[in-house]
């Protein structure tokens, strides 16, 4: 009669050291590849995001191969032992590793589905910033205030993620200016339009047009310019430059900012400050 008892795999110190060494080499290799690719991408101009796009895929491939190599060549487990390992892993996931496992699966989904890529500007939960890394466990963002935020990958299943540029360097920027209702609105729109189209940061093409819109509010008017910045890293500079130049020109034509309106009481009208 055949022996059906499952043999627990024996792992000696040498095997552990070998496995750790392989993991360490894989880690170093990933760091090196990441460094080289980022170095190249930062010099690639408009292809920056395209070059960085391969980073997460490369990481998961290297880590996946490392995992396979350890199981097949260092631990040399048989199928029965793998089943046992799978069972233990399942129990581990059930007890406490489920978040880590969800993060890894989230990372794989992000890599293949590409809801965002390294280099994109995204809004995830309460955070907004440029994606600098998509790791095994977390996505790292740099916010406009230069904070490094580490968002767990499983968030991709739990909440919507907005990518402002979806893998291209240009992104739309919405710029609002509020003017007094009595100001010459046609002139103001012309100035804002020219401020956008002459900006050093603007990017215009048939697929990336710009527009200036007007909306009336009770005591002021809102002019809204929608235009693309040539590189998402200049988002705030673009907004600031257009606003500054537009206001500088508005002053020459007597176009004023909306006034603060204070109601003094029934029948007494309003007072502008």
């Amino acid at each position: 009669m055949a022996d059906t008892t499952l043999q627990l795999p024996v792992i000696d110190t040498g095997t552990i050291i070998s496995a750790l060494l392989v993991i360490f080499i894989a880690y170093l290799f990933i760091r090196l590849v990441t460094f080289i690719l980022i170095f190249i991408s930062e010099r690639a101009g408009q292809y920056r995001i395209t070059v960085k796009m391969v980073l997460p895929l490369l990481k998961f491939t290297i880590y996946g191969y490392t995992f396979y190599y350890i199981l097949a060549n260092i631990l040399k487990w048989e199928s029965s032992q793998l089943i046992l390992f799978g069972g233990l892993l399942g129990a581990g996931i059930g007890f406490g590793l489920k978040d880590l496992f969800a993060d890894v699966i989230g990372g794989i989904v992000i890599t293949f589905e590409k809801p965002y890529q390294v280099g994109d500007k995204i809004k995830m939960g309460d955070y907004y910033g440029e994606v600098v890394d998509i790791g095994i466990r977390a996505t790292k963002l740099v916010t406009p205030d230069d904070n490094l935020v580490s968002a767990p990958n499983y968030l991709i299943f739990a909440q919507a993620v907005a990518s402002a540029n979806a893998g291209v360097p240009e992104m739309m920027v919405v710029i609002d200016v509020f003017i007094d209702s009595d100001s010459d609105v046609a002139q103001a729109m012309k100035i804002l339009k020219e401020s956008v189209m002459t900006s050093k940061y603007v990017y215009v093409s048939r697929k990336r047009p710009f527009t200036v819109l007007l909306k009336d509010f009770p005591y002021y008017r809102r002019l809204r310019a929608k235009a693309y910045v040539n590189d998402l890293r200049y988002e705030f500079e673009f907004e600031s430059e257009v606003t500054r130049r537009a206001w500088s020109e508005f002053s020459k034509y007597g176009i004023e900012a909306s006034h603060l309106n204070i109601f003094e009481g029934e029948g007494q009208g309003k007072k502008s400050v």
Binding site: A44, G45, Q46, P169, E170, K200, Y203, V204, S205, N230, D231
Partner: peptide, 8 residues
């Protein structure tokens, strides 16, 4: 200039 997207 093409790299910087200053010429289109």
């Amino acid at each position: 200039q093409k790299k910087l997207r200053l010429v289109w």
